[in-house]
Design a protein around this nucleic acid. Sequence first.
RNA 1: GCGCCGGUAGUCUAGAGGUAGGAUGCCGGCCUCCCAAGCCGGUGGCGCGGGUUCGAGUCCCGCCCGGCGCACCA
Length: 493
Amino acid sequence: MKKLTLDELVSLCKRRGIIFLTSEIYGGYAGFFDWGPVGVELRKNVVDSWWNYFVRFREDVYGLFGAIIMHPKVWEASGHVDRFIDWLVECKKCHARYKAEELIEEQGIEITDYSPQNLERIIREHNIRCPNCGGELSEPKKFNLMFETYVGSVKSEEAIAYMRPETAQGMFINFKIYSVYARNQLPFGIAQVGKVFRNEIAPRNFIFRCREFEIAEIEYFINPAEANECPYFSEVKNVTVKIWTKEMQKKEQEPKEMSIGEAYDEGVFSNMWHAYWVGESLKWLNKIGLSMENLRVREHLETELAHYSAQTFDIEYNFPFLGWKEIEGIANRTDYDLKRHAKFSGEKLYMVINGEKIIPHVIEPSWGVERVILALLTEAYSVKENRVVLKIPYELAPYKVGVYPLLKREPFIKKAREIFMQLKNDFEAFLDISGSIGKRYARADEIGVPFGITIDHQTLEDDTVTIRFRDTWEQIRVKTSELKETLNKYLNK
RNA sequence: GCGCCGGUAGUCUAGAGGUAGGAUGCCGGCCUCCCAAGCCGGUGGCGCGGGUUCGAGUCCCGCCCGGCGCACCA
Protein backbone atom coordinates (compact mmCIF):
# COMPACT_ATOMS: atom_id res chain seq x y z
CA MET A 1 0.00 0.00 0.00
CA LYS A 2 1.15 3.52 -0.75
CA LYS A 3 2.61 5.37 2.20
CA LEU A 4 0.57 8.24 3.58
CA THR A 5 2.31 11.59 3.22
CA LEU A 6 1.94 14.49 5.61
CA ASP A 7 0.76 16.65 2.70
CA GLU A 8 -2.18 14.33 2.08
CA LEU A 9 -3.14 14.42 5.72
CA VAL A 10 -2.81 18.20 5.94
CA SER A 11 -4.96 18.54 2.84
CA LEU A 12 -7.68 16.30 4.26
CA CYS A 13 -7.63 18.16 7.57
CA LYS A 14 -8.16 21.45 5.81
CA ARG A 15 -10.76 20.47 3.27
CA ARG A 16 -12.84 18.59 5.83
CA GLY A 17 -12.74 21.16 8.61
CA ILE A 18 -10.53 19.28 11.04
CA ILE A 19 -7.34 21.31 11.72
CA PHE A 20 -5.65 24.12 9.80
CA LEU A 21 -3.03 26.84 10.25
CA THR A 22 -4.44 29.88 12.00
CA SER A 23 -4.82 33.40 10.56
CA GLU A 24 -4.55 32.34 6.94
CA ILE A 25 -6.10 35.57 5.65
CA TYR A 26 -2.96 37.27 6.99
CA GLY A 27 -0.59 34.72 5.50
CA GLY A 28 -0.72 32.30 8.42
CA TYR A 29 1.08 32.28 11.76
CA ALA A 30 3.66 29.58 12.29
CA GLY A 31 3.08 27.17 15.14
CA PHE A 32 -0.55 28.02 15.85
CA PHE A 33 -3.55 26.09 14.65
CA ASP A 34 -7.32 26.32 14.54
CA TRP A 35 -9.65 23.37 14.94
CA GLY A 36 -12.64 23.28 12.61
CA PRO A 37 -16.15 21.89 13.07
CA VAL A 38 -15.01 18.27 12.77
CA GLY A 39 -11.71 18.72 14.59
CA VAL A 40 -13.26 20.34 17.61
CA GLU A 41 -15.54 17.31 18.12
CA LEU A 42 -12.71 14.86 17.55
CA ARG A 43 -10.45 16.64 20.01
CA LYS A 44 -13.20 16.74 22.60
CA ASN A 45 -13.90 13.03 22.19
CA VAL A 46 -10.23 12.13 22.55
CA VAL A 47 -9.82 14.27 25.66
CA ASP A 48 -13.07 12.87 27.13
CA SER A 49 -11.84 9.35 26.52
CA TRP A 50 -8.60 10.20 28.31
CA TRP A 51 -10.36 11.85 31.22
CA ASN A 52 -12.76 8.94 31.66
CA TYR A 53 -9.97 6.39 31.51
CA PHE A 54 -7.52 8.13 33.80
CA VAL A 55 -9.69 10.18 36.14
CA ARG A 56 -13.39 9.33 36.29
CA PHE A 57 -13.06 5.56 36.16
CA ARG A 58 -10.24 5.43 38.69
CA GLU A 59 -10.29 5.58 42.46
CA ASP A 60 -7.03 7.44 42.93
CA VAL A 61 -6.69 10.31 40.45
CA TYR A 62 -8.25 13.74 40.95
CA GLY A 63 -8.86 16.38 38.33
CA LEU A 64 -7.52 19.92 38.20
CA PHE A 65 -8.27 22.82 35.88
CA GLY A 66 -5.43 25.17 36.68
CA ALA A 67 -4.44 28.68 35.70
CA ILE A 68 -2.29 29.21 32.63
CA ILE A 69 -0.54 32.17 34.23
CA MET A 70 0.80 31.44 37.68
CA HIS A 71 3.01 33.29 40.10
CA PRO A 72 6.35 33.99 38.36
CA LYS A 73 8.20 32.34 41.26
CA VAL A 74 6.68 29.03 40.14
CA TRP A 75 9.02 29.08 37.15
CA GLU A 76 12.05 29.98 39.22
CA ALA A 77 11.35 27.06 41.54
CA SER A 78 10.70 24.69 38.66
CA GLY A 79 14.02 25.57 37.07
CA HIS A 80 12.44 26.93 33.91
CA VAL A 81 13.68 30.50 34.35
CA ASP A 82 17.25 29.23 34.60
CA ARG A 83 16.97 26.71 31.83
CA PHE A 84 14.56 28.37 29.46
CA ILE A 85 16.13 31.81 29.35
CA ASP A 86 19.64 32.22 28.01
CA TRP A 87 21.83 35.01 26.73
CA LEU A 88 23.11 33.73 23.43
CA VAL A 89 25.86 35.10 21.24
CA GLU A 90 26.08 34.30 17.58
CA CYS A 91 29.21 34.02 15.45
CA LYS A 92 28.96 36.69 12.76
CA LYS A 93 30.85 34.45 10.33
CA CYS A 94 29.55 30.89 10.71
CA HIS A 95 26.32 31.72 12.60
CA ALA A 96 26.96 29.14 15.30
CA ARG A 97 25.32 30.07 18.61
CA TYR A 98 26.64 29.78 22.12
CA LYS A 99 25.47 30.50 25.62
CA ALA A 100 27.44 33.62 26.59
CA GLU A 101 28.02 32.47 30.15
CA GLU A 102 29.41 29.10 29.04
CA LEU A 103 31.92 30.70 26.66
CA ILE A 104 33.10 33.04 29.37
CA GLU A 105 33.34 30.35 32.05
CA GLU A 106 35.31 28.13 29.67
CA GLN A 107 37.98 30.84 29.74
CA GLY A 108 38.14 30.46 33.51
CA ILE A 109 36.56 33.85 34.08
CA GLU A 110 34.16 34.17 36.97
CA ILE A 111 30.94 36.05 36.30
CA THR A 112 29.45 38.10 39.07
CA ASP A 113 27.05 40.18 36.98
CA TYR A 114 24.93 38.27 34.48
CA SER A 115 23.49 41.34 32.77
CA PRO A 116 23.85 41.33 28.97
CA GLN A 117 25.88 44.53 29.10
CA ASN A 118 28.39 42.94 31.41
CA LEU A 119 28.53 39.67 29.46
CA GLU A 120 29.30 41.64 26.32
CA ARG A 121 31.92 43.74 28.09
CA ILE A 122 33.75 40.58 29.25
CA ILE A 123 33.62 39.09 25.76
CA ARG A 124 35.09 42.25 24.23
CA GLU A 125 37.73 42.80 26.91
CA HIS A 126 39.00 39.22 26.74
CA ASN A 127 38.55 39.08 22.98
CA ILE A 128 36.55 35.86 23.15
CA ARG A 129 35.96 34.56 19.60
CA CYS A 130 33.89 31.80 18.01
CA PRO A 131 35.35 28.43 19.14
CA ASN A 132 34.34 26.98 15.80
CA CYS A 133 35.83 29.40 13.28
CA GLY A 134 37.39 32.19 15.28
CA GLY A 135 34.84 34.69 13.99
CA GLU A 136 33.62 37.75 15.83
CA LEU A 137 30.69 37.28 18.20
CA SER A 138 27.50 39.30 18.27
CA GLU A 139 26.17 41.08 21.35
CA PRO A 140 24.28 38.74 23.73
CA LYS A 141 20.65 38.28 22.73
CA LYS A 142 17.91 37.12 25.03
CA PHE A 143 16.66 33.72 24.10
CA ASN A 144 13.50 32.71 25.92
CA LEU A 145 11.46 29.62 25.24
CA MET A 146 8.70 30.84 27.56
CA PHE A 147 6.18 33.37 26.31
CA GLU A 148 6.27 36.45 28.48
CA THR A 149 3.47 38.81 29.27
CA TYR A 150 2.86 41.60 31.77
CA VAL A 151 0.39 41.41 34.61
CA GLY A 152 -1.14 44.72 35.56
CA SER A 153 -1.19 47.79 33.44
CA VAL A 154 2.44 48.79 33.79
CA LYS A 155 4.99 47.05 31.59
CA SER A 156 7.96 46.78 33.90
CA GLU A 157 10.48 44.03 34.60
CA GLU A 158 8.71 43.31 37.89
CA ALA A 159 5.40 42.77 36.08
CA ILE A 160 6.69 39.99 33.81
CA ALA A 161 4.73 36.76 34.00
CA TYR A 162 4.98 33.62 31.93
CA MET A 163 2.52 31.57 29.95
CA ARG A 164 2.99 28.08 31.35
CA PRO A 165 5.27 25.87 29.22
CA GLU A 166 3.97 22.75 30.99
CA THR A 167 0.95 21.87 33.11
CA ALA A 168 2.89 19.94 35.76
CA GLN A 169 3.63 22.92 38.01
CA GLY A 170 -0.08 23.53 38.48
CA MET A 171 -0.27 20.17 40.22
CA PHE A 172 2.81 20.69 42.36
CA ILE A 173 1.76 24.08 43.70
CA ASN A 174 -1.56 22.56 44.76
CA PHE A 175 0.00 19.53 46.40
CA LYS A 176 -1.13 20.46 49.92
CA ILE A 177 -4.75 20.94 48.92
CA TYR A 178 -4.83 17.65 47.05
CA SER A 179 -3.01 15.66 49.73
CA VAL A 180 -5.75 16.68 52.17
CA TYR A 181 -8.42 15.94 49.58
CA ALA A 182 -6.87 12.48 49.11
CA ARG A 183 -7.26 12.01 52.89
CA ASN A 184 -3.55 12.08 53.51
CA GLN A 185 -2.98 8.72 51.86
CA LEU A 186 -0.53 7.64 49.24
CA PRO A 187 -0.58 6.99 46.39
CA PHE A 188 -2.77 9.51 44.61
CA GLY A 189 -2.63 11.42 41.37
CA ILE A 190 -3.60 14.82 40.02
CA ALA A 191 -4.67 15.06 36.39
CA GLN A 192 -4.98 18.05 34.15
CA VAL A 193 -5.61 18.79 30.49
CA GLY A 194 -4.77 22.22 29.20
CA LYS A 195 -3.02 24.56 26.86
CA VAL A 196 0.68 25.24 27.20
CA PHE A 197 2.94 27.62 25.31
CA ARG A 198 6.50 27.22 24.12
CA ASN A 199 8.21 29.69 21.88
CA GLU A 200 9.75 27.06 19.62
CA ILE A 201 12.50 28.28 17.31
CA ALA A 202 11.25 26.24 14.40
CA PRO A 203 7.71 24.90 14.59
CA ARG A 204 7.40 22.16 12.02
CA ASN A 205 5.51 19.15 10.72
CA PHE A 206 1.96 20.44 11.00
CA ILE A 207 0.62 19.98 14.52
CA PHE A 208 3.55 17.81 15.59
CA ARG A 209 5.50 20.78 16.90
CA CYS A 210 3.49 23.90 17.67
CA ARG A 211 3.95 26.93 19.86
CA GLU A 212 0.55 26.59 21.50
CA PHE A 213 -0.58 23.08 22.24
CA GLU A 214 -2.35 20.91 24.73
CA ILE A 215 -0.96 18.55 27.32
CA ALA A 216 -2.85 15.82 29.14
CA GLU A 217 -0.87 14.98 32.21
CA ILE A 218 -0.90 13.14 35.51
CA GLU A 219 1.38 13.74 38.47
CA TYR A 220 1.16 10.53 40.43
CA PHE A 221 2.50 10.76 43.98
CA ILE A 222 3.89 7.61 45.55
CA ASN A 223 5.59 6.74 48.79
CA PRO A 224 9.25 6.16 47.82
CA ALA A 225 9.43 3.35 50.38
CA GLU A 226 6.60 1.63 48.50
CA ALA A 227 7.80 2.37 44.98
CA ASN A 228 7.67 -1.30 44.06
CA GLU A 229 4.27 -2.00 45.57
CA CYS A 230 1.74 -1.30 42.87
CA PRO A 231 -1.55 -3.14 43.54
CA TYR A 232 -2.70 -2.67 39.93
CA PHE A 233 0.38 -4.15 38.32
CA SER A 234 -1.39 -7.33 37.19
CA GLU A 235 -3.52 -5.15 34.89
CA VAL A 236 -0.49 -4.18 32.81
CA LYS A 237 2.08 -6.91 33.20
CA ASN A 238 1.02 -8.74 30.05
CA VAL A 239 1.00 -5.63 27.86
CA THR A 240 3.59 -6.42 25.22
CA VAL A 241 5.47 -3.81 23.23
CA LYS A 242 8.82 -3.06 21.66
CA ILE A 243 11.09 -1.64 24.36
CA TRP A 244 14.31 0.18 23.59
CA THR A 245 16.42 0.73 26.70
CA LYS A 246 19.31 3.17 26.77
CA GLU A 247 21.73 0.22 26.88
CA MET A 248 20.25 -1.20 23.67
CA GLN A 249 20.52 2.21 22.03
CA LYS A 250 24.14 2.61 23.06
CA LYS A 251 24.98 -0.87 21.79
CA GLU A 252 23.05 -0.09 18.61
CA GLN A 253 20.72 -3.02 19.19
CA GLU A 254 17.18 -3.16 17.90
CA PRO A 255 14.29 -2.61 20.31
CA LYS A 256 13.15 -5.84 21.92
CA GLU A 257 9.56 -6.97 22.14
CA MET A 258 8.73 -7.82 25.72
CA SER A 259 5.93 -7.58 28.24
CA ILE A 260 5.85 -4.87 30.87
CA GLY A 261 6.11 -7.62 33.48
CA GLU A 262 9.25 -9.09 31.92
CA ALA A 263 10.81 -5.68 31.49
CA TYR A 264 10.11 -4.83 35.10
CA ASP A 265 11.68 -8.11 36.25
CA GLU A 266 14.75 -7.31 34.19
CA GLY A 267 15.10 -3.96 35.95
CA VAL A 268 14.28 -1.78 32.97
CA PHE A 269 12.11 0.62 34.99
CA SER A 270 13.11 2.86 37.86
CA ASN A 271 10.32 1.27 39.93
CA MET A 272 7.10 -0.71 39.66
CA TRP A 273 4.87 2.35 39.51
CA HIS A 274 6.89 3.70 36.63
CA ALA A 275 6.38 0.40 34.79
CA TYR A 276 2.69 0.46 35.63
CA TRP A 277 2.15 3.90 34.13
CA VAL A 278 3.98 2.95 30.96
CA GLY A 279 1.64 -0.03 30.69
CA GLU A 280 -1.54 1.96 31.41
CA SER A 281 -0.47 4.56 28.86
CA LEU A 282 -0.05 1.91 26.20
CA LYS A 283 -3.43 0.39 27.03
CA TRP A 284 -5.19 3.69 26.48
CA LEU A 285 -3.33 4.52 23.28
CA ASN A 286 -4.26 1.09 21.99
CA LYS A 287 -7.87 1.58 23.07
CA ILE A 288 -8.18 4.74 20.98
CA GLY A 289 -7.04 2.89 17.90
CA LEU A 290 -3.24 2.99 17.76
CA SER A 291 -1.93 -0.48 16.98
CA MET A 292 0.81 -1.93 19.15
CA GLU A 293 2.97 -2.54 16.07
CA ASN A 294 3.18 1.21 15.59
CA LEU A 295 4.06 1.94 19.21
CA ARG A 296 7.32 1.50 21.04
CA VAL A 297 8.83 2.53 24.37
CA ARG A 298 12.18 4.28 24.23
CA GLU A 299 14.24 5.17 27.28
CA HIS A 300 15.94 8.57 27.33
CA LEU A 301 19.72 8.59 27.27
CA GLU A 302 21.42 10.38 30.16
CA THR A 303 22.22 13.25 27.82
CA GLU A 304 18.58 13.92 26.96
CA LEU A 305 17.14 13.61 30.46
CA ALA A 306 15.36 16.71 31.71
CA HIS A 307 16.82 18.43 34.76
CA TYR A 308 14.03 17.09 36.98
CA SER A 309 14.02 13.51 35.77
CA ALA A 310 15.73 10.39 37.14
CA GLN A 311 14.45 8.28 34.25
CA THR A 312 12.15 8.97 31.31
CA PHE A 313 10.49 6.78 28.73
CA ASP A 314 8.99 8.11 25.56
CA ILE A 315 6.14 6.33 23.90
CA GLU A 316 6.85 6.74 20.22
CA TYR A 317 4.54 6.30 17.27
CA ASN A 318 5.79 5.20 13.88
CA PHE A 319 4.51 7.94 11.58
CA PRO A 320 4.89 6.92 7.92
CA PHE A 321 6.04 10.47 7.10
CA LEU A 322 8.19 11.24 10.17
CA GLY A 323 9.42 7.91 11.48
CA TRP A 324 9.34 7.07 15.19
CA LYS A 325 8.40 10.18 17.14
CA GLU A 326 7.45 10.91 20.74
CA ILE A 327 3.74 11.24 21.48
CA GLU A 328 3.98 10.76 25.25
CA GLY A 329 6.67 10.88 27.92
CA ILE A 330 6.62 9.07 31.26
CA ALA A 331 9.15 10.56 33.68
CA ASN A 332 10.18 9.74 37.19
CA ARG A 333 10.45 13.27 38.63
CA THR A 334 11.32 11.92 42.07
CA ASP A 335 10.88 14.52 44.83
CA TYR A 336 12.58 17.24 42.77
CA ASP A 337 9.58 19.53 42.32
CA LEU A 338 8.11 19.28 45.82
CA LYS A 339 11.51 19.98 47.35
CA ARG A 340 12.10 22.96 45.06
CA HIS A 341 8.70 24.47 45.79
CA ALA A 342 9.17 23.84 49.52
CA LYS A 343 12.45 25.73 49.33
CA PHE A 344 11.20 28.63 47.22
CA SER A 345 7.84 29.06 48.97
CA GLY A 346 8.80 28.16 52.53
CA GLU A 347 5.79 25.84 52.73
CA LYS A 348 5.99 22.35 54.18
CA LEU A 349 5.37 20.16 51.16
CA TYR A 350 5.42 16.70 52.66
CA MET A 351 2.97 14.28 54.21
CA VAL A 352 3.02 12.69 57.63
CA ILE A 353 1.81 9.12 57.46
CA ASN A 354 1.90 6.94 60.58
CA GLY A 355 4.08 9.50 62.26
CA GLU A 356 6.59 9.42 59.45
CA LYS A 357 7.47 12.44 57.35
CA ILE A 358 7.35 11.54 53.67
CA ILE A 359 8.17 13.58 50.60
CA PRO A 360 6.37 11.67 47.84
CA HIS A 361 8.05 10.78 44.58
CA VAL A 362 6.29 11.54 41.36
CA ILE A 363 5.67 9.46 38.25
CA GLU A 364 4.51 11.73 35.44
CA PRO A 365 2.85 10.44 32.28
CA SER A 366 2.44 13.35 29.91
CA TRP A 367 0.67 13.16 26.56
CA GLY A 368 0.87 15.68 23.75
CA VAL A 369 -2.78 15.89 22.73
CA GLU A 370 -2.02 17.15 19.19
CA ARG A 371 0.54 14.41 18.72
CA VAL A 372 -1.84 11.71 19.89
CA ILE A 373 -4.48 13.03 17.49
CA LEU A 374 -1.96 13.20 14.65
CA ALA A 375 -1.14 9.54 15.32
CA LEU A 376 -4.83 8.73 15.49
CA LEU A 377 -5.55 10.42 12.15
CA THR A 378 -2.55 8.70 10.61
CA GLU A 379 -3.67 5.31 11.81
CA ALA A 380 -7.28 5.93 10.76
CA TYR A 381 -6.44 7.18 7.27
CA SER A 382 -7.17 4.52 4.70
CA VAL A 383 -7.96 4.43 1.01
CA LYS A 384 -10.71 2.26 -0.44
CA GLU A 385 -11.39 2.30 -4.17
CA ASN A 386 -9.52 5.58 -4.50
CA ARG A 387 -11.54 7.23 -1.78
CA VAL A 388 -10.38 8.24 1.68
CA VAL A 389 -12.01 6.48 4.61
CA LEU A 390 -11.12 7.74 8.06
CA LYS A 391 -11.45 4.66 10.26
CA ILE A 392 -11.66 6.40 13.60
CA PRO A 393 -12.87 4.15 16.45
CA TYR A 394 -16.64 4.58 16.76
CA GLU A 395 -16.48 6.14 20.22
CA LEU A 396 -14.21 8.93 18.99
CA ALA A 397 -15.96 9.69 15.71
CA PRO A 398 -16.99 13.35 15.49
CA TYR A 399 -20.35 12.38 14.02
CA LYS A 400 -21.89 8.96 14.55
CA VAL A 401 -24.58 8.83 11.91
CA GLY A 402 -25.57 10.55 8.67
CA VAL A 403 -29.15 10.48 7.37
CA TYR A 404 -29.66 10.48 3.62
CA PRO A 405 -32.74 10.47 1.40
CA LEU A 406 -31.83 8.32 -1.59
CA LEU A 407 -33.23 10.91 -3.97
CA LYS A 408 -33.35 14.62 -3.55
CA ARG A 409 -37.11 15.00 -3.66
CA GLU A 410 -40.25 14.44 -1.68
CA PRO A 411 -41.35 12.22 -0.08
CA PHE A 412 -37.80 10.97 0.60
CA ILE A 413 -36.71 14.26 2.14
CA LYS A 414 -39.71 14.42 4.44
CA LYS A 415 -39.08 10.91 5.74
CA ALA A 416 -35.34 11.62 6.15
CA ARG A 417 -36.16 14.68 8.26
CA GLU A 418 -38.38 12.54 10.44
CA ILE A 419 -35.64 9.97 10.99
CA PHE A 420 -33.07 12.71 11.66
CA MET A 421 -35.34 14.29 14.28
CA GLN A 422 -35.80 10.89 15.85
CA LEU A 423 -32.03 10.25 16.09
CA LYS A 424 -30.49 13.59 16.82
CA ASN A 425 -31.07 13.57 20.57
CA ASP A 426 -29.35 10.24 21.03
CA PHE A 427 -26.52 10.41 18.49
CA GLU A 428 -24.28 13.03 16.94
CA ALA A 429 -26.28 12.98 13.71
CA PHE A 430 -26.56 15.10 10.61
CA LEU A 431 -28.86 15.26 7.62
CA ASP A 432 -27.32 15.49 4.15
CA ILE A 433 -29.53 15.92 1.08
CA SER A 434 -27.00 17.56 -1.18
CA GLY A 435 -25.49 15.69 -4.15
CA SER A 436 -25.78 12.10 -5.30
CA ILE A 437 -26.00 9.36 -2.70
CA GLY A 438 -22.48 8.16 -3.53
CA LYS A 439 -21.10 11.63 -3.02
CA ARG A 440 -22.72 11.87 0.36
CA TYR A 441 -21.31 8.51 1.44
CA ALA A 442 -17.87 9.61 0.27
CA ARG A 443 -18.00 12.87 2.23
CA ALA A 444 -19.08 11.03 5.36
CA ASP A 445 -16.29 8.46 4.97
CA GLU A 446 -13.70 11.23 4.84
CA ILE A 447 -14.64 12.47 8.31
CA GLY A 448 -15.10 9.00 9.71
CA VAL A 449 -18.88 8.81 10.20
CA PRO A 450 -19.46 5.16 11.18
CA PHE A 451 -23.05 4.78 9.98
CA GLY A 452 -25.23 6.06 7.17
CA ILE A 453 -29.01 5.73 7.24
CA THR A 454 -30.56 5.72 3.77
CA ILE A 455 -34.22 6.35 3.08
CA ASP A 456 -35.18 4.54 -0.12
CA HIS A 457 -38.32 3.40 -1.94
CA GLN A 458 -38.81 0.46 0.34
CA THR A 459 -38.75 2.77 3.37
CA LEU A 460 -41.90 4.40 2.09
CA GLU A 461 -43.59 1.02 1.80
CA ASP A 462 -42.59 -0.86 4.96
CA ASP A 463 -40.89 1.71 7.21
CA THR A 464 -37.46 0.10 7.08
CA VAL A 465 -34.17 1.85 6.35
CA THR A 466 -30.70 0.68 5.49
CA ILE A 467 -27.66 1.16 7.72
CA ARG A 468 -24.44 1.51 5.74
CA PHE A 469 -21.17 0.76 7.49
CA ARG A 470 -18.22 3.06 6.91
CA ASP A 471 -15.52 0.43 6.99
CA THR A 472 -17.11 -2.27 4.82
CA TRP A 473 -19.68 -0.29 2.81
CA GLU A 474 -22.08 -3.11 3.55
CA GLN A 475 -25.69 -2.38 4.30
CA ILE A 476 -28.29 -3.98 6.51
CA ARG A 477 -32.00 -3.22 6.62
CA VAL A 478 -33.77 -2.51 9.90
CA LYS A 479 -37.16 -1.26 11.01
CA THR A 480 -37.09 2.44 11.90
CA SER A 481 -38.57 1.53 15.27
CA GLU A 482 -35.46 -0.55 16.00
CA LEU A 483 -32.95 1.94 14.62
CA LYS A 484 -31.86 3.44 17.92
CA GLU A 485 -31.41 0.09 19.58
CA THR A 486 -29.44 -1.28 16.62
CA LEU A 487 -27.10 1.71 16.43
CA ASN A 488 -26.49 1.55 20.16
CA LYS A 489 -25.59 -2.10 19.81
CA TYR A 490 -22.95 -1.27 17.20
CA LEU A 491 -21.68 1.67 19.23
CA ASN A 492 -21.41 -0.59 22.28
CA LYS A 493 -23.42 1.82 24.34
C1' G B 1 17.66 30.86 14.12
C1' C B 2 21.16 29.44 9.69
C1' G B 3 21.40 27.13 4.65
C1' C B 4 18.94 25.08 0.22
C1' C B 5 14.19 24.59 -2.33
C1' G B 6 9.24 26.08 -2.93
C1' G B 7 4.18 29.10 -2.56
C1' U B 8 -1.22 29.79 -8.79
C1' A B 9 -9.39 28.96 -6.70
C1' G B 10 -11.46 25.09 -0.67
C1' U B 11 -8.16 20.92 -2.60
C1' C B 12 -4.67 19.10 -6.59
C1' U B 13 -2.15 21.23 -10.60
C1' A B 14 -0.50 23.77 -16.03
C1' G B 15 1.66 28.36 -17.23
C1' A B 16 8.73 30.69 -16.60
C1' G B 17 8.00 38.63 -19.43
C1' G B 18 2.47 39.71 -23.44
C1' U B 19 -5.70 38.16 -22.37
C1' A B 20 -4.33 32.96 -15.85
C1' G B 21 -5.97 27.18 -18.13
C1' G B 22 -7.49 22.39 -16.32
C1' A B 23 -9.19 18.74 -12.70
C1' U B 24 -11.86 18.28 -8.40
C1' G B 25 -14.89 20.46 -4.69
C1' C B 26 -19.00 23.69 -3.71
C1' C B 27 -24.02 26.00 -5.37
C1' G B 28 -28.38 25.77 -8.86
C1' G B 29 -31.02 22.93 -12.72
C1' C B 30 -32.16 18.32 -15.57
C1' C B 31 -31.70 13.14 -14.85
C1' U B 32 -31.15 9.02 -11.47
C1' C B 33 -34.25 3.45 -6.48
C1' C B 34 -27.50 2.99 -3.62
C1' C B 35 -21.35 4.36 -3.65
C1' A B 36 -17.45 11.25 -5.57
C1' A B 37 -22.14 8.74 -12.46
C1' G B 38 -23.93 11.96 -16.80
C1' C B 39 -25.48 16.70 -19.08
C1' C B 40 -26.27 22.24 -18.56
C1' G B 41 -25.26 26.66 -15.84
C1' G B 42 -22.72 29.19 -11.85
C1' U B 43 -18.93 30.17 -7.85
C1' G B 44 -13.90 30.77 -6.86
C1' G B 45 -7.08 31.94 -7.71
C1' C B 46 -1.17 34.07 -8.78
C1' G B 47 1.08 34.63 -0.04
C1' C B 48 2.16 40.12 1.36
C1' G B 49 4.89 44.69 0.26
C1' G B 50 8.32 47.30 -2.72
C1' G B 51 11.38 47.62 -7.28
C1' U B 52 12.80 46.81 -12.72
C1' U B 53 9.77 47.03 -17.35
C1' C B 54 5.47 49.87 -22.22
C1' G B 55 3.87 45.35 -19.70
C1' A B 56 5.39 40.96 -13.84
C1' G B 57 2.50 34.27 -11.39
C1' U B 58 6.93 34.85 -14.39
C1' C B 59 12.92 38.98 -13.15
C1' C B 60 15.16 41.62 -8.46
C1' C B 61 14.82 42.95 -2.96
C1' G B 62 12.44 42.49 1.86
C1' C B 63 8.82 39.99 4.77
C1' C B 64 5.29 35.94 5.63
C1' C B 65 4.07 30.71 5.10
C1' G B 66 5.68 25.66 3.94
C1' G B 67 9.29 21.37 2.87
C1' C B 68 14.27 19.34 3.71
C1' G B 69 19.16 19.58 6.34
C1' C B 70 21.72 21.78 10.61
C1' A B 71 20.85 23.79 15.37
C1' C B 72 17.08 23.66 19.28
C1' C B 73 13.54 20.37 21.78
C1' A B 74 13.59 22.23 29.34
